[in-house]
Nucleic acid binder design. Structure first.
Length: 493
DNA sequence: TGAAATGTTGGGGCG
DNA sequence: ACGCCCCAACATTTC
């Protein structure tokens, strides 16, 4: 019957062979990508698209290290799409206008993407979805960046969780995260569509080229992410629960830079960990860390101003100091506290810092130097290859004490004790603060206490080759406690 | 040799 | 995802 009544050819083209746009954003991978998988499963050409959005709010514009990652992630995605039979199309401008332009020029009838959770992202995507749907197009979004949706995982009262432990318990009660999706076998592209080159967007630093340390450290590709995951599951997961606190040990996953633009998905990490042959407590600890990321995203979703406003508004009157010399010393890793300096230099060199040291350096900035957490957040945003709109902001507020489920204000990390506890033999400090490497362990964490002859043997001139502490620990601690104490009068959670 | 001084470790309370 | 202070209990050194 159908054979006798052929459809008009133009109508047939529109409904059956009209291309679908897959709009990539924070999911620059071909495996476990629901939007791409859905498009590939249909018998129609696919236009894989990445848009450099020009109307981003200031705080959402990627920092320098993120741009470096983004460049390589886009190269990786383009290369992987080529193995599947197509290639990545790039565009710059307002997302809706670009999508509408492609719809018009290429006759696309559907647009697919994986959801994002920042205020700007949600606003943009909601508007685009309703506009496209109003034009009779299919606009469909998928869940890929989070294991559970912030709209679905709520307290018994129907509100968002503000404390991690009950969030985790609720998370555990949810159905297990869906299985990982396979990489599409083949994708039909469109030949005649033109695109600028990735290099045209000048994402890599040139004057100066500060990225040599990043190049040495990261293989920012989808296969690099898989290598990193495999290495972690084989070598790092065993002993993770305790070893993750020791910066000289290789127990942390170092997967966060790959998660940033979705070179790997949280589903891939979750299932790899759950299925791994490793002690249960280590696996559980890793899953809980992954869920801290979820918690941060849920917070950001429900409190979109988390990145620039104190979650606890009683901090709005906090008497932050503005000492630019202190800030510069912190940024350059010249505070005179070896663990702090080691962390800040690891960050500058590699775009990454071990989690334990992030807490110590952040606490030092906010409490010892009394610098506004937003200043530190911006520095990390610019320098971290894993700078994440949810984790970065939620964690800075956590350290400052202004956040949800935050560290109590009086929790002030002692950078000397943290060094002795978590870098007892100084491996980490000697690596990143080599001018101290000749000091015996006894003085490594407080070189200002070393006697003259020991300093001479270690070829250190205090105040010249390594700075004296820019603030006295006890004085700085008392100053911070005083400031917080005054604040506490209005403290209410 | 023994008593006093000095050093070390760990728990409780609290910022 | 902490540290400081105080103090007791115990260990070691000193003269």
């Amino acid at each position: 019957m159908l054979a006798n009544t052929p459809l008009p050819s133009n109508s047939r083209d529109r409904s059956d062979h009209a291309p679908a746009i897959v709009w990539f954003r924070d999911d620059l991978r071909v495996a476990d990508n629901p939007a791409l998988e859905y498009a590939a499963g249909q018998n129609r050409p696919v236009i894989p698209l990445f848009i450099f959005e020009t109307n981003l709010p200031e705080h959402a514009q990627p920092g320098g290290a993120q741009k470096w990652i983004l460049h390589h992630a886009l190269k990786s995605l383009d290369a992987n799409l080529k193995t599947l039979g197509t290639r990545l199309i790039l565009a710059e401008g307002d997302a809706l206008q670009i999508l509408q332009g492609i719809v018009t020029r290429q006759g696309a009838r559907s647009v697919y993407w994986n959801r994002r959770y920042t205020q700007h992202g949600i606003k943009t995507d909601t508007n685009i979805k309703s506009t496209l749907a109003g034009d009779g197009l299919e606009a469909r979004s998928f869940q890929a960046t989070l294991l559970h949706e912030p709209t679905k995982l709520l307290t018994a009262a129907g509100g968002p969780f503000k404390v991690y432990s009950p969030f985790w318990r609720a998370f555990e009660r949810q159905p297990a995260p869906r299985p990982v999706l396979p990489k599409p076998i083949q994708i039909t592209g469109i030949d005649e569509i033109s695109s600028p080159e990735i290099d045209d967007f000048a994402l890599l630093p040139s004057k100066p080229d500060w990225a040599s340390g990043l190049r040495e450290t990261w293989d920012a590709t989808e296969s690099g992410a898989q290598d990193c995951l495999g290495d972690f599951i084989t070598n790092g997961l065993h002993g993770y629960a305790k070893g993750r606190d020791i910066p000289a040990k290789k127990n942390v996953s170092r997967l966060s830079p790959y998660l940033r633009y979705g070179l790997v998905s949280p589903y891939q990490l979750w299932h790899a960990a759950v299925e791994a042959d490793a002690p249960e407590n280590d696996k559980l600890k890793f899953c809980k860390e992954l869920v801290w990321r979820e918690f941060s995203y849920h917070l950001l979703y429900h409190f979109p101003s988390l990145g620039w406003q104190n979650f606890n508004s009683s901090f709005d009157d906090f008497p932050w100091l503005k000492d630019s010399q202190d800030l510069t010393a912190w940024q350059k890793g010249k505070t005179g506290y070896p663990l702090v300096d080691a962390g800040m230099r690891e960050l500058w060199h590699t775009g990454y810092m071990h989690n334990r040291v992030r807490m110590v350096t952040a606490s030092f900035l906010v409490k010892h130097l009394m610098v506004d957490w937003r200043v530190g957040e911006r520095w990390f945003w610019d320098t971290l290859v894993d700078a994440d709109p949810a984790s970065n902001t939620a964690s800075w507020q956590w350290v400052a004490g202004s956040g949800a489920d935050a560290a109590p204000y009086f929790r002030i990390f002692n950078p000397i004790i943290q060094g002795k506890k978590f870098d007892p033999d100084g491996t980490y400090i000697r690596k990143w603060v080599p001018e101290l490497s000749g000091l015996p362990d006894k003085y490594l964490h407080e070189p200002w206490l070393a006697p003259e002859n020991i300093l001479r043997e270690a070829e250190i001139q205090m105040g010249i080759s390594y700075p004296f502490p820019i603030v006295d620990h006890k004085a700085a601690r008392d100053r911070a406690l005083d400031a917080y104490k005054n604040l506490k009068k209005e403290y209410a959670i």
